[in-house]
């Protein structure tokens, strides 16, 4: 049961500026669906219990004059039109048709997907992306084929593997493409999804809410994990510890530190935790905002996972400057 108590029942938290409109549409649709379903269900249940073989001696041949069906149909049409015209099309138009203008000072990033990693390409302080060509691709050092030697604009470019630091509170444009097969660039907690199609570069834009940081999100998603006693099943404990960090320093009764703050708990620490009499841990996800690949892309599609590191603009700038200095550096996962 502890498993069920930890389970998510609805939408994951959203840290984008546009996401609430998507969530609102999803919520309203489900209210509407629930009303229709319950309405049908109640009528169905009534008929099923009222008109049984025993309670009725002869069925009615003449069809009932049911105005209800017309009313339902018209109501459904009206509601769907409203949802479509008022709540879906404008959201989508903003999402697809109105990119941030130069006045918005957007920050542009390129994403080049490959089996099975996300290559994040930043233009560096000059703001200009260096040229990419597959003839320069070297798997270990230059996965996107950046022309480091020939193109001066490429000198300060930053390429990162699966790690995607982004500033909060600034318009972001991500141009998504792929080196090999079709992937789909999805950040559920920013309500962003765009297929990465080889041969085509497709832009998608969003803005992380001002003031958001990955650290704060980790706090928000924190949960308490019960340490199983000896002899109890460890399945749930191991599941909840996966990719999670401890929030506090965990000390035993004798004052000995069992887990440092920010350590990754797991099976290895179980004995020590039990010995120290620790009953529960407070943990949060190591990488709270993840990039999913939502399009089947091959063998290890299931672990094509990236991490968005949301920072303040100041922290982001610091990281950006530092990385850009190390010309040619490739940031490992």
């Amino acid at each position: 049961m502890s498993l069920l108590a930890q389970t998510t029942w609805w939408l994951p938290p959203d840290f984008s500026e546009h996401g609430w409109q998507i969530d609102r549409l999803i919520n309203w649709l489900h209210y509407f669906m629930a009303v229709l379903f319950v309405g049908w269900g109640v009528f169905l249940a009534y008929c099923m219990t009222r008109f049984t073989w025993k309670r009725v001696s002869m069925a009615h041949y003449t069809p009932v004059k049911a105005k209800a069906s017309k009313v339902i149909e018209v109501a459904v049409i009206i509601f769907e039109v409203i949802l479509l015209v008022v709540f879906s099309m404008p959201v989508l138009a903003k999402y697809k048709n109105e990119p941030p203008t130069p006045a918005d000072n957007p920050f542009e990033v390129h994403v080049v997907a490959q089996q099975f990693a996300w290559n994040i390409h930043y233009p560096g302080p000059d703001g200009i992306f260096g040229k990419r060509d597959i003839k320069f691709v070297k798997d270990a050092t230059n996965p996107i084929g950046l022309d480091r030697d020939g193109d001066p604009n490429a000198k300060d470019d930053i390429v990162s593997n699966n790690q995607m630091p982004l500033p909060a509170g600034r318009h972001i444009i991500v141009k998504v493409t792929s080196k090999d097969v079709i992937h789909s660039f999805n950040i559920p907690m920013l309500r962003v999804k765009q297929d990465a199609v080889p041969g085509i570069e497709i832009p998608v834009w969003f803005k992380v809410k001002e003031g958001t940081t990955s650290d704060a999100i980790r706090e928000q998603m924190a949960r308490t994990v019960v340490v199983p006693a000896a002899g109890e099943s460890t399945t749930a404990y191991e599941l909840w510890c996966r990719n999670n960090l401890t929030f506090d320093e965990v000390k035993g009764a004798d004052g000995q530190v069992v887990l440092k703050k920010g350590a990754e708990p797991g099976k290895d620490h179980l004995e020590a935790l039990r010995a120290a009499g620790v009953k529960e841990l407070r943990v949060g996800p190591r990488d709270p905002v993840e990039i999913h690949c939502t399009q089947l892309c091959g063998l290890t599609h299931y672990k094509m996972r990236g991490q968005v590191l949301i920072q303040s603009q100041a922290d982001f700038d610091k990281w950006y400057e530092e990385k850009a200095k190390g010309t040619g550096d490739f940031i490992e996962d």
């Binding site: 998510t8 939408l11 990719n243 999913h292």
Partner: peptide, 27 residues
């Protein structure tokens, strides 16, 4: 429906490596 609304994608050999996958693994 709950797993999907939570944001877990289809066609995964296992979903437990993802945070959102962990949260819905009991489903």
């Amino acid at each position: 429906f709950f797993v999907g609304i939570a944001g877990v994608q289809r066609r995964l050999w296992t979903q437990v490596d993802y945070n959102l996958g962990q949260l819905t693994q009991s489903w």
